[in-house]
Nucleic acid binder design. Structure first.
Lengths: 191, 191
DNA sequence: AACATTTCTTAATCTAGGTTAAGTACTTAA
DNA sequence: TTAAGTACTTAACCTAGATTAAGAAATGTT
């Protein structure tokens, strides 16, 4: 069965007509690794529901250093939320980490979906609530814990995926340089 | 007119019956400064819409250091989202900074509100979307900017309120110690 | 296979911000 | 009004993590 419909069914129940309607608003797309779906400065016109592969979002600071905002694996959504919601230029890059398949929803279709299938307001409210909780937790973790503890948390959260993600991206996600991350890992091995 | 209804009206339009219904789910409460509305380890049973004063939420790390998660002034919501949504014990404290008035909504009433006035699904979806964007922006800022730049951003975001908030709380919000914040401020004055 | 590019590691050096400690203002409460 | 707590400052010293640089290993390309 369809992964998106499965996920929706966890929170709201749709009739089969509504299910079809939802799918009709989405566009299945395939991307090779390293494809860039969005660049900083562009308007984010689509939100992506990942069904296969891994996609990440990041920003680049004034020194050209990347900071990973999120990794999306199957069952997760990814977009530059600020830009997608406001339809103004955003600051995030969205890039395919591993050959991926997604269901893409345009901003217009997202709005249509809300008006034609109002139950989805609830579904997305819940999805976004969960993202907010995760984002606040990460903020707290960054302020409360050392890099080592943050790496522990990362491994717990992404356990199986950690092996598919280049170290420099993990370093970026937990907020340290690749060099320090490498040193830290060597230190951990000695224990 | 009522601040909550004003805010709702910015995103969805309610009939006057619906407006009354919404208010009937809320409980107006007053609190003196320093009142603690929620402690770490407790279940967050209410979400608060601030109509007067300032309320803040924070966690305390294993060394007893506080980290401010958010300041809520009139027109803002505050709760331990994780705990409120899951009804499990949370890690946040919620404390009144300045004598405050709020509209409190219990978890049960929140759920009733969603089922009796489905338009509110949309309202809260939008509110939470905006919180998510703000939270992610703060994450990016913490990873990309120095303490000085973060303080600049803080001043822009909370300009008028900055004067009402103790320095140690500002320091905590931007993620530095009170001592370093003090040093940094002195350095900024010299420029 | 050979070259180019990117990723990862190691090590020396540096710095933003933390820690400790002591002193000076403010508040708050009896 | 006075004592006790809390907020802010200053300064000496410390450290987690950054920076720079150079080599080794992996990966991609012709």
């Amino acid at each position: 069965m369809n992964l998106l419909l499965e996920n929706i069914a966890k929170h709201v129940s749709l009739t089969s007509q509504e299910q079809e309607r939802v799918l009709s608003f989405t566009e299945p797309l395939q991307f090779k690794a390293k494809t860039i779906l969005l660049k900083s400065g562009e308007v984010c016109t689509h939100s992506y529901f990942v069904t296969k592969g891994i996609i990440r979002s990041y920003n680049m600071d004034e020194n050209g250093v990347e900071h990973v905002v999120s990794f999306a694996c199957p069952g997760w959504w990814i977009a530059d939320m600020y830009s997608f919601l406001s339809q103004r230029p955003g600051q995030l890059y969205i890039e395919v980490n591993e050959d991926a398949e997604v269901l893409a929803i345009s901003k217009e279709n997202q709005e249509k979906m809300y008006s034609e299938v109002p139950k989805l307001e609830r579904f997305f409210r819940i999805i976004i609530e969960n993202s907010l909780v995760a984002s606040q937790q990460r903020l707290i973790d960054n302020m409360s814990f050392t890099a080592e503890a943050r790496y522990d948390k990362f491994l717990k959260k992404f356990n199986d995926l950690a092996h598919c993600i280049p170290q420099k991206q993990i370093a970026s996600y937990i907020g340290v340089t690749p060099e320090f991350f490498s040193k830290m890992k060597a230190r951990l091995l000695k224990k």
